[in-house]
Design a protein around this nucleic acid. Sequence first.
DNA 1: GATGAATGAGTTTTCATTCAT
DNA 2: CATGAATGAAAACTCATTCAT
Lengths: 211, 211, 211, 211
Amino acid sequence: MKCQKVKKESLVVNRQQEIIRACEELYETMEYEDISIKEIAKSTSICRSNIYNYYQTKDEIFLDILERDYLSWMEDIKDRMAREEPGRESYCRNIAATAALHPRLLKLMSVHYIAIEKNCSLEKLTAFKHAIHPFQETMEEILRTYFPKASREKIQNFLFLLLSLIQGIYSMTSLCEKQVKAMQEVDPDYRMPDFASALYQALYILTSDLI
Amino acid sequence: MKCQKVKKESLVVNRQQEIIRACEELYETMEYEDISIKEIAKSTSICRSNIYNYYQTKDEIFLDILERDYLSWMEDIKDRMAREEPGRESYCRNIAATAALHPRLLKLMSVHYIAIEKNCSLEKLTAFKHAIHPFQETMEEILRTYFPKASREKIQNFLFLLLSLIQGIYSMTSLCEKQVKAMQEVDPDYRMPDFASALYQALYILTSDLI
Amino acid sequence: MKCQKVKKESLVVNRQQEIIRACEELYETMEYEDISIKEIAKSTSICRSNIYNYYQTKDEIFLDILERDYLSWMEDIKDRMAREEPGRESYCRNIAATAALHPRLLKLMSVHYIAIEKNCSLEKLTAFKHAIHPFQETMEEILRTYFPKASREKIQNFLFLLLSLIQGIYSMTSLCEKQVKAMQEVDPDYRMPDFASALYQALYILTSDLI
Amino acid sequence: MKCQKVKKESLVVNRQQEIIRACEELYETMEYEDISIKEIAKSTSICRSNIYNYYQTKDEIFLDILERDYLSWMEDIKDRMAREEPGRESYCRNIAATAALHPRLLKLMSVHYIAIEKNCSLEKLTAFKHAIHPFQETMEEILRTYFPKASREKIQNFLFLLLSLIQGIYSMTSLCEKQVKAMQEVDPDYRMPDFASALYQALYILTSDLI
DNA sequence: GATGAATGAGTTTTCATTCAT
DNA sequence: CATGAATGAAAACTCATTCAT
């Protein structure tokens, strides 16, 4: 009985894995708003109507991807921290460099709060918040290590600003050709900034508050 | 003849005004992605097919709204600067407080780069960039007034981060009920931060780089 | 499993049948360019959006009708040939008389090359060409039987002219009332020629080349 | 008074000329069914709604083009006849060669009876028939010159078949790339026939009836 | 007569979602 | 659970045509 249940569950997980993988692949070349359940199903061995047995909306799929990506980024940060010396610059470099290694997460973060979360069920959303709780915890802990003198409040403020910044900087450093052209029409010297550098610089200033 | 032309032009402007107004009203209660030209037309005395004589896509309408809002915010900042004393705190208060008076602009900024600009024609986009050029210019000038010692590069960096921050902070301080509930499920003490305060704090730290 | 697949396939065929039948009925009273998928769906128990699961454009439906009609005509010709004596006149009578029994095919042929084929996918078109290959083969074979001395080239030329003639003769012998009136305004003696007679006469002359 | 009327009329003719010219230009690159009054007006200095003062439908414009082209072809045939020796082959060469010099007429003839005439007013159509009456007359006269022994009926039959043939042969010798590809998929040796040669051959056989 | 504005009707196409099997 | 079929709703877009000026 129990064994069967486990079997079922693992089947469910397998299906979800397949759906997630398909969605991830699409997201590499398509925009969030252009991805539909139909499209996702097509990239899958599962038929469209069956997808509804696992996910209610495409946003719930994206929420699962977000979850993994947040935690994966967290792991990268921890790994890197273990290998790097302490120090403000080191911290900023760590964050900026690892963030740049997760382009999908960055892309997702720009629609995380304004779109994905708005289209999910409360249950799914709560589960997501629970799942990424370690991210918040770990990030705070790491900050405490790097900046032992900073107050809890300052650290939480900083984290809030870090997540905010990433969304905004990403959106302004991922312009399409047309956008760049239009900018250069007005200011011929315009060059699209680099995400990692821009984030590093911002973090460097913001961490001044934590020393 | 010329008089007629002027008449016609003013009709065009009137029509665009009406369309913009309808779009603005819808945007107060609806999300960007749920607004369609069909919906906008419905809130208008103009029929849908006629809308196409004034705007090709909804994004071109939003771009016009963005333009006005950016410039309107700029005016507010200038007005306020004239009345306030100099100083870093004063600047940050000015920006944060006036921004909070333009909630629609804030909401628009969160989709400005990732959606609106992507769906416009290059021509429309270039015209927009030209139109809001004074915004960039004025913002830089104001910063030079407040922070006379800051280099041009630092000022431009700061402006870039300001715009980035607004997008991110707004998205994280405009959660719907469901999002707040989910947060509180994990952390019962969670309170959604206030946009203006969060922005003020961030700016206060970032301006340290300009002194 | 297999049984189900067969069931499904037959459903597809059934649906296509229904769509084809509806299109055929419309084509009896309407012109090709006035028929739309919307109109076809209306004459069906199937909803418009579901039609797209079976046909991409109305032209693909017409191509299917064309296919059947060509092959049906071919069968009629073969049948009649079996019952008739040999001879040039007999052949011409056979072709003209059987063609007249397929008015829908004649009507379709007048838009076959200039419209229907132009709006189909290459795949669909290739499938069609394969499907009506027997028509070409059979027509050549019949000609070889009736005109054993004619070279292969002459026979192919003749077939090409036969198909050409049908298109043109049909268009000039299927005038609407208005067209006839206009003709008679200029030449009061004008009588619209009869398709079968006109075709017979033309074929009789053209077959002189095959003896 | 009269002078004014003449002025007006010539203005009307000028406008119609401009409209016709625009339509002709479009027809060089576009298909009949894709051309709209909107499109024609765009290629003109006349506004769309004003076009209705000169033509009711696009087909009436096409009818005017047809008229000119028929008469122009007739002139070419007469010219050439004056320069060529008599004889059956000479006649066929004349017709085929001059026809090939009027590709627009050929293209128009393929939709002349099945589309253009169907969408015109009776008045316009009657006027057209009157206008091209000389074409019929001249063509008969030329045939009588070349084939003095042929009966009036045979000559009229021949003319009927000539016009029929042109429509059909043109449609089968003006395939688009896709159509050719599909043909070659079934018969790799397929080569699209040449219009002028095909017409010449057909005429050569058909004229045997006139000797 | 000429024009721009406006409209309504039509068409294609796409999708989320439901349902019977 | 899985599936294909089916549907309804919506969105984008185009055009012929009318009308007031």
